[in-house]
Design a protein around this nucleic acid. Structure first.
Lengths: 209, 209
DNA sequence: TCTCAACGAGACGGGTCGTCTCGATCGAGC
DNA sequence: GCTCGATCGAGACGACCCGTCTCGTTGAGA
């Protein structure tokens, strides 16, 4: 079954299909309009008509390629995220320091207002739409989680972590309290918080001497 | 500033204001209609008009008391949740067993379809609406988190946990991976998962011998 | 140069929004 | 019991957005 949230990119990605017609200009205009508008009016008041008008595009052009405003945002966000490809977490040999550095940077990123509106909008939409959330998780979240799992695996193989540790759950112990605080505003997102979190999580994962 | 998501309950709670007029029948009918409808058509297609029609109530009666459909759901959910007051987590002296028992029960509860729609809807709405999310967290989530913090505190005072442990973050290490999996569907919610999670979290919190 | 799908633009019926206006209903105070 | 006034159920109203459907127009592929 085709992933309705990620339609074929018209001219890009040399697929098997002959090729769609021109549209790249409209595509970019739609992404920019969607991201700008969701920041201005919020997700609830974001409309397809509004995006089309702002992008200088016909409504049909949007309806032709995306099934919902959430799908437009997902593509817009994914297109922006693809820009900086993941190159893995740093590995200086000091696991705690590496994790703290990355998570501190992520704190700053998540406290940036420009980021918040579209990202929150996507999570919210995915909460109520299972298919969308699967696309969202698979495209934007899962790769990030795997980076942490891999960094933990390297530490385990270096003898730093207990061999019996469940790496996936270990990564979730690091990331979920973080994203939960941000998403549901159950607590502040500070450098001190991630430092304590990293220390307390690693205490449980480390090999006993 | 008044909490717009939780208007004065008309006849209940003897406040300073003289008293609102009768409405309890309508109030209950609105809650029942809202919860039933959100389960049938989902949050996106839930409308104020629909709730009013189903409850046999004028639209104005809803608009008079609540600012949005999310606020109606929050009150409906809170009113249902107030029914079974929290009486604290079990304390048999075996922390791991107690936590596993409670979290396993919570797994079953969260896998219940009837629960999911309104709860997801509220989280989603709160994601995009800061004030709503603060009401939601304060009224429905924070009390639950505190139960875990208190159970951990009892264990720490019994000498089971390290005295330096941050209880709040400890509780989040237990609960956030859980709710994250449920909310964003990043993984399955099973008894085996919570068992491993509890073991792995407690490994880090326990006092070293 | 010709062809034809995608394009911008916008008309269309249907539905919901939030506000407003009706009598009717009921609690509070006399 | 009677008056008073706020809330009640009901629904009309204009505005907006939905998703579909035409229009000519544009531009890439043959």
């Amino acid at each position: 079954m085709a992933n309705k949230a990620a339609p074929d990119a018209p001219p890009g990605s040399a697929g098997g299909t002959p090729t769609r017609r021109y549209s790249e200009r409209s595509r970019q205009a739609i992404f920019e309009a969607a991201l700008a508008l969701v920041g201005e009016v919020g997700y609830e008041k974001l409309t397809i008509e509004g995006i089309a008008a702002r992008a200088g595009v016909g409504k049909q052009t949007i309806y032709r390629w995306w099934p919902s405003k959430a799908a437009v945002l997902l593509d817009a966000f994914g297109s922006a995220a693809d820009a900086y490809e993941h190159e893995g977490l740093p590995d200086t040999g000091d696991l705690a320091a590496d994790l703290k550095a990355v998570l501190r940077a992520t704190v700053d990123e998540f406290n940036d207002a420009a980021w918040q509106a579209p990202y929150r909008a996507l999570v919210a939409a995915g909460t109520n739409d299972e298919e969308l959330s699967r696309s969202f998780v698979g495209r934007l979240m899962e790769p990030g989680i795997r980076l942490y799992v891999e960094r933990l695996r390297a530490a385990r193989e270096a003898g730093e972590l207990d061999p019996d540790v469940d790496l996936r759950i270990g990564a979730e112990m690091l990331l979920s309290p973080f994203s939960q605080r941000w998403l549901m505003r159950t607590g502040e997102l500070t450098h001190a918080f991630v430092d304590t979190l990293v220390d307390q999580v690693l205490r449980g994962l480390r090999r006993r001497d």
